[in-house]
Amino acid sequence: MAQTLILEGNEGYVLSEILKLSDAQHPTGYLSNEEYTKYFLKSVKGVSNVRKTLAQQINDPTITNVGIIVDANSKGTKARFDSIKSTLTQYLPTVENWDYVASSPAGWVADVAPSFRVGLWVMPNNKDDGYFEHFLTELIAPEDESFLAAQEMLTSIQKSKNQRFPDLRAQKALLALFLAIQEEPGMSAVTALRKGLLRHKHPAARLFVDWYENTFTLG
């Protein structure tokens, strides 16, 4: 049994930390950390590479489970769902059970062919536009004062002439600002998860863990 998790960006380590803190098991066949990071996680750059990588996985009959994590960005979840569907229909003789259901907070998981399960998670929440950082900032406690401070900083930067990033990437800036002003300045998201500043028990993270557990065969 071979399984892979295809990621559009480099969020694999952070998401793996959420899984680890939630006591999710490693996928069957990838029990060591090396097997997990080297062979299970496939970080590729951009959606077109996600599709190419998915095509490779479909063409390999030893692959039984594939998870895909992409950002909705401003394209919307349906566009992402359809793009995965077109790759599936291109390379599989028949595709079953892959029908779009709007606002599917638990992501989409289906046995699309015999011995072939596909799970799709569209960041941030399988519903709204946005990306990975929207998902992560959701995990910050709303009363966290450093988060309020980060939001104020972002607002003042946006009002000034010093905003160098495009508006679409503001949430990345916000998360970076939040992490920048922690006890350890420029803290990593992994450390923030370990310290509970990003809460892995938040329902949004819980849904992600469920999606992972539904997509893969574990243990």
């Binding site: 071979a2 080297k38 062979y39 496939k42 590729v44 590479n49 190419k52 990588t53 490779q56 390999d60 009959p61 030893t62 692959i63």
Partner: peptide
């Protein structure tokens, strides 16, 4: 080249 770049083995 794509397989090598994305560290995908030609499995199986």
């Amino acid at each position: 080249e794509f397989m090598m770049d994305t560290k995908l083995e030609i499995r199986g």
